[in-house]
Write a protein that binds this DNA or RNA. Structure first.
Length: 207
DNA sequence: ATCCCGAGGG
DNA sequence: CCCTCTGGAT
């Protein structure tokens, strides 16, 4: 059995139902939650959005918000000043250019402030069901440890290699399984190598 | 390459 | 104390 097949089998067995853990009720809430999740655990994001989405329900609510107030409402997560500014401007752009709707193309999404390739890929994949692999810190670390990419590959290079090696109809679920694997098992610090079924395929501790 | 930046874990 | 968390803009 090939390396990729082995990895997919083990991931299927470990996390049969991995999915997006950011709580959201619509595409706009998902976009906001993903923007908030940069350098922040989704647990912290969910704790925040639980109250945030009661106060800010629509793009208009963010667009019309006083920036200083919005900053204070985001104070419990990292990078809150950047995120407040980006959310307000993003919401204004949705109203002006997209009739208040979240655009469904990569190019349009990446025009929004604070939205880069990773965030756009998550929205496309999770909300619009477009096959994408969003490479975040977990996916990058796991991919490099399991030799699906070289250590000096950029995140874009990692994404290209994953798309080439993994069947397209497996991109979405495998992405989430790699997230879970990285978050709960193959952690950045002190990974659980003892009972890891992928130990033989791994270059750790050399990254 | 560097900055932004709070919460949680070890 | 230090490191990490589903990054993006400059």
């Amino acid at each position: 059995m090939g390396r990729v097949e082995t990895i997919l089998d083990v991931l299927d067995e470990m996390f049969p139902s991995a999915q997006c853990e950011l709580v959201h009720n619509n595409g706009f809430e998902l976009l906001v939650a993903v923007m908030l999740s940069a350098q922040t655990t989704d647990e912290s994001v969910n704790k925040l959005t639980k109250s945030l989405f009661k106060k800010y329900r629509t793009p208009s609510d963010f667009a019309n918000a006083d920036l200083a107030v919005l900053e204070q409402d985001l104070r419990t997560i990292g990078l809150f000043r950047n995120k407040a500014k980006n959310l307000k401007t993003m919401a204004m752009m949705l109203l002006e250019e997209y009739n208040g709707e979240v655009p469904s193309s990569q190019v349009e999404l990446e025009k929004l402030p604070g939205v880069g390739r990773k965030t756009a890929n998550v929205v496309l994949s999770v909300w619009f069901d477009v096959p994408r692999i969003a490479v975040d810190t977990h996916v990058e670390r796991v991919s490099k440890r399991l030799k699906l990419a070289y250590l000096n590959d950029s995140v874009l290079k990692v994404e290209e290699k994953l798309m080439r090696k993994i069947p397209m109809n497996r991109w979405s679920d495998t992405h989430h399984k790699m997230i879970f694997f990285g978050r709960y098992h193959c952690t950045a610090k002190r990974p659980n190598c003892d009972q890891c079924k992928l130990k033989e395929l791994c270059r750790y501790p050399h990254i």
